[in-house]
Amino acid sequence: MNEVKKIDYADDGQFCSGHVACAGCAEALAMRVILNSVGQNAVGVVSPSCSAVILGGHPLSSARIPFLHGTLESAAASASGIKRALRAQGKDDTTVLCFAGDGGTYDIGLQALSSAAERNEDILYVCFDNEGYMNTGGQKSSSTPSGAVTGSTPLGKATQKKNLIEILAAHRIPYIATVSPSHLNDMAAKMDKAKAIRGTKVIIVLIPCLPGWGVADHAAVSTARLAVESGVFPLLEIEDGLRTRMHPEHKIRPIDAYLAQQKRYRHLSEADRAALQAEVDANWARLSAQAAL
């Protein structure tokens, strides 16, 4: 009962050393789990983002599967086309994967994703949500949470993080899940589940961006863990846009420790922090009610 629970997915070498992610980057850590879960029979599309940088550097690739480097607007559309082409060739069992950032998902690629979701295209869409345009130097996106400082919101963002999960749920796609680099078994299990489902699957991965959020090189995992434990980033699954499951079912701490690990929240006043806490509490209460249905 008190034993350290082992991480038990198998690393088959689908993601390679020598990539150029920042030292300590949780996105590379998550890509390791995701690519090994997806396996060899897969084709990927990646939109301009940190993941494109981590995967690439032509002619080298850190992935063992082919990736098409597309445009920021079109990841879901490109993936849809690839899936249909594969199906026409009788290769329907090949997984088509999308890697995109939050900018390429919440903002610039939303139209393509919405269309693919509406058509329930058989794609596995992974959004690496580092809450900003990070490989271009750290500007805000619609995923940046309220209060967070970015290069383009020097006083802290005035509006809330866009609720992409509810937008996606409204499309009634078969599977939506959130995963965190602090919970690798959960991430691997949700990937396995998503892989087995036909239709549009979206996985949102929380990525504490080291330079973007002002987090220490060794602290991406602990920051993500605090986000989960404080309810800032609930781990959930939504099936068919209707059935919500949360795990863990309880948040166990206030947001203070989470905020304290990040420079982007350093300027917050007591009142700002209380407002953020209230936002987290309200979101959690709404989700819990949804999960109880």
Binding site: C16, S17, G18, H19, V20, G56, G57, H58, P59, L60, S61, S62, R64, P66
Partner: peptide
């Protein structure tokens, strides 16, 4: 096409 893995780096 990419022809080598990032392990070259």
């Amino acid at each position: 096409w990419t022809n080598l893995t990032s392990r070259e780096r």
